[in-house]
Structure formats: C-alpha cells, structure tokens
Design a protein around this nucleic acid. Structure first.
Lengths: 180, 180
DNA sequence: TATTGTTATACTCTATAACTATA
DNA sequence: TATAGTTATAGAGTATAACAATA
C-alpha cells in the first residue's frame, strides 16, 4: 500500500499558531495532568499508538529531508530510486516497484524525469528483451553520492534527542515492524 | 507538515508478484550478503535511514489499521479527530488542526462528514462567538469507544515481532523524535 | 498464459488564496 | 489588526484498467 514518496510540503508560510496560551479546554474533564499534544489538548491516547507515532516521526524526519535535499532537487522517492540503482546497477523498473512498493504506472514518470535530467540511463536487459536495466550516469553517481552523504548527516540532526544507541535501537525496532 | 490522514489503500487486487525467484541482479556487485529488501535487491543503506524506516513502519501499521477500521468506516484521520473530541469535549476545529497538523480547509469536510453521520455535534463556544465547540453524540461516543478498543487490540498484532517492552521502547523513542 | 513497461485516467490528499464574522 | 471557520481550487500522490511487446 502506498509508495515511499511524500506530500509536497516545504513551501507553506502558514499563519503562526498560538505558542503558549492555546485557549483552555472550554469543557468538562480537561484530563488531570494533560500532556501537551501541540495545542494543549489531551493527546495521551493517540500517543500510545504505534501507527500514530510512526507517522508523526516519519513526517517530522521527512520535513527535514525535504529541506536538505532541495539543492539536489530530489524528493524522498527520487533519492530512494537513485540509491537503489546505485547499489543495484542494472535493476529493472519492476524490481524497484517491488522494493519500494510503488505501482508501475507511478514509477514511469519518475524514471523518465531522472533520465531527462541525465542522472540515469537505460540499457537493454541482458536476458529479457521486455525489460531494461537501469544505471546511473557519471553525473547521476556524483549526485547520488552527495545526496547520500547529506542523508547520512541528516540522520544525526533528526535524532538529536536520541543517543546513538537509541537511534540504532529505534531503527532496528522499526525494521522489525515492517519486515515480514 | 502534512496531516495524519493516509492514502486510499485497501482496495487493490494488484497483480501477483514474484514471491521467491525475483530475477537475479543482472549486473555488477550484487552486494556480498545482500539483505533482501522485498525483491532481492540491496536495500541495506536505505534501511539505515530513520525517515525510510519510520515511513515503511507507519505504512505497514496503517495498512492493518485501515482493514480493521473498515467496519467503522473510519480513516486514521477520522479516528484521530473522534478520539481527540472524545478526550477533549468542546475542542475547537482550530485546536484539532494544531494538534494533528491538519490545515483548516482540509478539516472542514471531515467535520462536516462526521456531523452528517450523526457522530459529532457542534455547540456554540462559551466565550468566543467565532468558534464552535465540538462534542460527540451518544452514537459518536459508542463508535469511538469501539474503534478505540479495536485500535488498542491492533497494537498487539502489528507488533507481534516485538516484545511488550520493545513496543514501549519503540513508542517512546518515536515520540522523542517528533516532539520538539 | 503471464510479465514488463507504458498510457490514460480517476480519485484522494495536501496546499494556497481569499472571504465572513467576530475578537 | 488578528483569528475561527469556510469556500474554491490548484497541485501532488495513489490507484485501476488496458494495451503492445516479449517470455
């Protein structure tokens, strides 16, 4: 279900929100020691849910990713595609779709775009004439290398509230959740 | 950036994919002990990234959530809205937007829909005549209670690969990432 | 008969501008 | 002048059906 791309955030000068005094809960039972959920509301229950927490964390990290990748003009899904091609030269579109859970029709435009930018090249598949092997151009390799460095550096910043051990634990536990 | 809703998955009888023999990497350096990324590809690097792992895990959990919530006809964002209203009766739309990171124009339709279903009712705000307090109807309370039970049960299933302690750790670390 | 890559297209999600009523 | 709620709409993301070429 769904691919690994992400919404077009990163361009909204939205109206400022109340930072401190978020209008007291105007009704009954404001929850004893109400944990702040960003608006003074009781979000305690939602914060017990793995899906809720994983999505909030993902959006938070991806927001930083979007900013840092702007110089490369790469969305998360573009970076994933380039990176998989870099590490798996000759990979087919179909394999990328399976690995990233992208539907084939939705990958076509991305590959076409990356190709138009001169980052990837398609070569005939050695054994299957239906398929095409995807490879990085020299420029594609350079860009992917720089983007990967940026992504790796990013890792430290987005996890500044965590120790290195905690980050390693977090990643390991997340993989356990989706790898089945 | 972005709200907590989710794509319209849960209705795709997609074509079956190669389960075991996913066509060997047709080119150089297939990575020594290549960890399977779902298609026999080397996805090792992507799996070191918090954003990648968090998003994959979130999508995995949400896919289960979508199935289990079908009887209630509730998307994740609908469940979040109902739950916040349940725990914060009289909450305003604006507060929901801030807590869930939803843009006001995008909440309007959801609230309207939940109201049309007779799940929530709007009452005049006690002190601000611009605003409206949101409350659950009797039916809304019943549905939210059942849905919350379902969500809590779901928690065990989606984390079947984790011990209870690991799940608690995972949730705590995720909150640390996005709460800042 | 099944799969790869593709086009066309519908539908959902996310974002911006702008308006009104009230503060 | 600023905020709550709203409308309209643009743009990005996700999904399905169907086709030609090849296996």
């Amino acid at each position: 279900m769904s691919d690994l791309s992400v919404a077009n955030s990163m361009r909204r000068p939205r109206a400022p929100r109340k930072p401190a005094s978020p209008a007291p809960a105007p009704d009954a039972t404001p929850s004893p020691a109400a944990p702040s959920g960003g608006a003074g509301l009781d979000t305690a229950y939602l914060e017990t849910l793995l899906g809720y927490n994983a999505r909030r964390a993902a959006l938070s990290v991806i927001a930083v990713f979007l900013r840092r990748m702007e110089p490369f003009d790469l969305r998360p899904v573009d970076f994933s595609v380039l990176t998989l091609i870099a590490h798996n030269p000759g990979v087919t579109s179909r394999q990328l779709c399976a690995a990233l859970d992208i539907l084939p029709p939705n990958l076509v435009g991305m590959v076409k775009n990356l190709q138009k930018r001169g980052l990837i090249v398609r070569k005939p598949h050695p054994t299957d004439r239906r398929a095409q092997g995807l490879h990085l151009s020299a420029g594609g390799k350079r860009l992917q290398r720089e983007a990967q460095s940026t992504a790796t550096e990013l890792e430290h910043d987005v996890s500044s509230a965590l120790t290195p051990n905690e980050l390693a634990t977090l990643n390991a536990l997340l993989r356990k959740v989706y790898q089945r």
